[in-house]
Design a protein around this nucleic acid. Sequence first.
DNA 1: GCGACAG
DNA 2: ATCTTGTCGC
Length: 200
Amino acid sequence: MVKVYDDFSEINTVAGVDVAYDKEANELVAGIVVIDLDSFDVIDSNWARAKQNFPYVPGLFSFRELPSIIKCLRDIKIAPDLFVCDGQGIAHPRRFGLASHLGVLFDIPSIGCAKTKLLGEFVEPEVMRGAYSYLFDKDEYVGSVLRTQSNVKPVFVSPGHRVSIESSVEYVLKLSPNYRLPETTRMADQLVRQQLKAGN
DNA sequence: GCGACAG
DNA sequence: ATCTTGTCGC
């Protein structure tokens, strides 16, 4: 099952994962970009399409998005040390969001970084970059609400697999020096959008 | 019954 | 997610 504590030696490469929906083709387009954590250089990337065989249902996100992601991962040559997903980790009704699902599937540490929350209560974090508060469901801490940029809406960070809440915050912060979302997420998003625009 | 609800 | 103008807040 999901391990919500640090269980990794060192993180040198991080993979950003993002999926977009092609309404015309009724297909999901996944994009993955693997970067070197120190230089932010892209060292591998790929994209893939998959038919939408499952609708968008809050809480069942994985069933809709994973097929395309798995297909995309098939041709990634450099296995990343960490996955950063556009979605939730354990901040999920079953404590098993997209990031958790992907992490367990490949047994690779993973973090969920979402733009909005699926569930949980929290107090607004301070306005400076780096400030964060905890997200809790009932009496259980399931993630954090992190300010990646000063005076900008915070992001919802939650452990996926083999990463603690504190480390999740640390890595997302490190990956978001200039924008609200992690560079990995932005790069994966760009890759996907580029393919859609090109009609691929 | 009412509100909330990752992308 | 995606479609899109004017509008609100700092």
